[in-house]
Amino acid sequence: MPRRLKDRMQDKPLLAGAFALTVLFCLFFGAKLVLIALHHPPRPTDPPIANWMTPGYVAHTWHVPKEMMLEVVGPRPGERRETLDEVAERLGITTPELIARIETAIADYRATHPEAAPE
């Protein structure tokens, strides 16, 4: 390091410390981004179905009609949007059971509607 730069760092130890810390943070996030880019699995066509999703959200992300989802989950009782956890509770089953039912229904739908199947 040139002498003048070193002098300046010693002149302002607090700023120099903060500077070193931000450089480290920058390298840390940069390395994480490189790792994501290298190891990211190819984007799945169908995102895994999770308890926080609503039937409409699943229909949208799996590219199936909402009417098909309605047949599985039944009409919602009120105006309130239901998550899959709440639908399962209303139907008196567990969330994994509900998710399995939805997955079966989507598979059946795709079998009869080849245009709806993912590429």
Partner: peptide
């Protein structure tokens, strides 16, 4: 944004 895309 995602829920908006789904019409929710």
């Amino acid at each position: 944004g995602a829920f908006a895309a789904a019409g929710e």
